[in-house]
Amino acid sequence: MPQDTTSLSQGKAQTSWFSRNNQGGRLWTLLLFLPPALCLFTLFVVVPLFEASFFSFYRWNGIGELNNYLGLQNYSKVIGHSAFHTAIGNTLKIVAVSLLIQLPLALSVALCVYKQSWANTVFRLIFFLPYILAEVVAGLIWKFIYDGNYGVVNMFTEFFGLENYFILGDKQWAFAAILIVIIWKYFGFHMMIFIAALQGVPNDLVEAAKIDGATRLQTTFLIKIPLIKHAIILSMFFSILGALQLFDLIIPLTNGGPSHSSHSIVSYLYTFGISRMRIGFGSAIGVLLFIACVVFAFTYQNAFMKDKK
């Protein structure tokens, strides 16, 4: 309410601006409540972002003077690096698999279990379980499954009398193995989004369609799925943003190997920037990642999510 400066106030000019706006301790509370978070956020989230774009023009190992100005060399090095190309390719693969396999899987499962019942709840919990595990744990468990000497892969090779096969050591298939883990870990999350949306579909619409003679399949494709379009758009958004951020899962599974064939963008950043303390080079990767995220988020929201709000 006191937001408008009451310019109409006639000559009587009562009390000061401060006391007028400080009714109920408003200003004191503001001064106490806002700055801590604002400072923390600025200092540890926003400032590093700007510093990253600054550092990316230098060669620097984090110690000593920041004087080795390189211009755009770090960027051209990143962009020319074949491991970076692989990482981008891998990210695109994650996006493709997320959209073409994970999302339909999650949607089909959600359609099966979205109604309230005892059995459905159990299924939902099971499907959601991998999502709450830490990425490193999921990675280690699957590393065992994929282990050529022990795991399930070994079981198959033994059964067919083949040689031991280490899929995570196979340049061709290592990333495909990671993709399976990604589906395993995250489809439950998308399922939950769809379930929430499906539960919001008014029941009378579904019933009206039934009375109009629609089959179950028709109600699903003509009523339910169009009505949860916003959830699908959102889920795609999370899938793509998630693909851009993937890291924890890669490290236990392959650590980016063999010969840097299974890096995600962040694990690439970690391997070539952080662990070698190449601040400038790593920052350049970070900046590129940032640009990718912001461009994606803005275009996506403009294209799909605008009319919703």
Partner: peptide
């Protein structure tokens, strides 16, 4: 009640 500022008058 004092829940709303008085723009003018008293």
């Amino acid at each position: 009640a004092g829940l709303e500022d008085i723009s003018e008058g008293c």
